[in-house]
Every structure is written in structure tokens, then in C-alpha cells.
Amino acid sequence: MELVCPAGNFPSLKAAVDNGADAVYIGINDKTNARYFPGLNFHHNNLHKAVDYARSRGTRVFLAINTFPQQSNWQDWVNAVDCGMDNEVDALIIADTGVLHYAADKQASTPDCNVNLHLSVQGSSTSHESLMFYVNQFGIKRAVLPRVLSLKQIERLAAKTPLELEVFGFGSLCIMVEGRCYLSSYLTGDSPNNCGVCSPAHAVKWEETENTLTTRLNDIVIDRFKPNEAAGYPTLCKGRFKVDDTVFHALEEPTSLNAMALLPQLQEAGIKAIKIEGRQRAPAYVAKVTSIWRQALDNFLQAYDSSLWQPNSHWVQQLASVAEGEQTTFGAYHRSWQ
């Protein structure tokens, strides 16, 4: 199983590569990627440095072009695909059907093109039949599965599909089917699909009064924290809301996904790659998470009986310490979470 790690900038890319990522995924500094945050990502003219550094150390590079162009800004996505192909990245991770069409055409008309096409998690593909649309139309090699499938569903899907499958192993947890969540644009105008952001910083307000810290998105209260509570970033789906006069995390608690303990089942199912979320995180985070997952995967792959393998409790604690809300979950992999 391959370890695919996030790199929001060059220091993070170095951190991921130096700590044992098999592949890194990066984005271009515009709306073409789903982590379009200030100060993050690579430019058209320095992306080759990322490719050079990673490749010289045997790490593959995937370019995420995982948002949806409108008619008026289509050219930016074309430029992103061209940039990835010109720099000979190993794969383009694409969400939009039109962009996939463009990339597949370009791939076919470029002699000796070794750039693979991967379907992004933002493509919302959760079944064999859906995946086959992209296989038949564009010859995609791999798909990243949305974080909505249970382990059983993943096993059945993997048994049926001819594609390589990549699943999320660790990081922030999107609980809605990716690519089809418009909650953020409903409150702020910007969504992952159209702007590459969720609950964007420009809409966030922190308001401290005597005994309460209130977080808002476009003036709407997302949560209120008492002095003894850890206050988190106001991601819309992780806030506390009122339902029938009870205030609670109506959608999800602030928590991170950690599927490390499921490695035996994921391996058995034939999952090809484990993805670590977090291009927005600091290089130190990327270094720590990559290093722990590298140790875990190596240990797992060398295990005498991998079906009995369990993660070392030290790794689990270390990962929880950097997780959102300092807690982790199996998310949708376990039916009980659903």
C-alpha cells in the first residue's frame, strides 16, 4: 500500500518526502485546487522544483486539480492540466468531467505521456457503476473514494472494480459526500466546488466576551465556547447548533479521521493507497504524521500475520495529539458512526 501525503508548499513537500511518503499531492495557487488558501500551493513557474525534489528521492508527485471550472474561468483549469503535463507529474487528480475530458485528450495526443489520471474525491464516485463512467470515458487509473463508505462497502467495491482505489487514512473529516456539499457557499458565498475553500477565513469572526468565545461565519453563530473549552476553527459542519431547543454538534464533532487500525482490512480488500489529508497544515504536522504512518505501514507490511496487526499505542496517541479536537474516529468506515 502506498502512502500519499499532503504538501501545501515546498517545506511541507520536503517534510513529506524526507519522512517517507511514497507520493505527495500538491496544488496550484489558484481556484483549481480545493485548498486555495493564502500563502499555500505552488506556482506554474516553480512547480518543477517540487517535482525535481520529490523525484530525486524516489517520491511520486500528484497534482490536484480538484475543483469545478465555470464557463468564464475554464482556461485556468486548462492551464493547470498543461502545467502538470509539462512538468511530467505522475498523476493529475481531477474532479470535473470536462477537465477530465480535456486531460484525457491531451494525454492521448502527447507521445510517451506517462501522466496518469486519477478521479478526485470531489468527483463523488461511490459505486462501481459510477467509477466505470470515468474509466470508459477517460481511462482513469485510480479513484479516491469519498469518506462516506463503510468498510464493507469498500470491500465490495474493491472486489468489483478494475481500478486502483485510494482511501483516506488520516486527517480532517468531511462528513458530507465530497463534491456535493454546498453548505459553505450557502452561508459565505464560497464553496469547495467553486472557490476551493470551505468555511473561508474571510468570513470568519472570533468574538471574545467575558465568559464566552463566539465563532461566526458571515455573522452566523457557528459555536460558543466556555473558557475551559478548546475552541476550534468554525468549520460549518463541526459547529454546535440548536435542534428542538437542544444545542449540540448536530452534524459532527470536531474530530479527525484515523483509519490506521483498519489497515489489515484495507490491505485485504486490495486498497492501493492511503491518503493523508492536510495540505493546509504546517510542515511540522506533515513531517510528524508522515513519519508515524511510514513506521506503521512498514511495520504492518513486515508483520508475520498482518491480519492480526494492531497499531502501536504510541503512534495512536501521537496522531490524536495533532488531530482536530484531539480526538479521532473511524468515521463512516464503521457503521455505528453513521
Binding site: 469545478f68 471550472p69 465555470q70 464557463q71 475554464w74 474532479a95 470535473d96 468531467t97 470536462g98 477537465v99 475530458h101 480535456y102 463523488s124 464516485s125 461511490t126 459505486s127 457503476e129 459510477s130 466505470m132 463512467f133 470515468y134 470508459n136 463534491g179 456535493r180 466546488n193 467553486n194
Partner: peptide
């Protein structure tokens, strides 16, 4: 969902592309 697109193609049936297919541009259309 794209699964319905694949199956509609299989049976040569026409379809309406629902809003969650995320067709935002004419290249996708």
C-alpha cells in the same frame, strides 16, 4: 449520480442531468 448515467447508457435511455452531477461548464455538458 454518475452511476445512473452509466446504467442509462447501458440501456440506451435518455436522461436529465440532475443538479448533483455538478455540470458547471459546456465541456462537461
Amino acid at each position: 449520480d454518475y452511476a445512473a448515467v452509466t446504467i442509462a447508457q447501458e440501456f440506451h435511455k435518455p436522461f436529465v442531468a440532475g443538479c448533483t452531477l455538478n455540470a458547471y461548464n459546456t465541456q462537461t455538458l
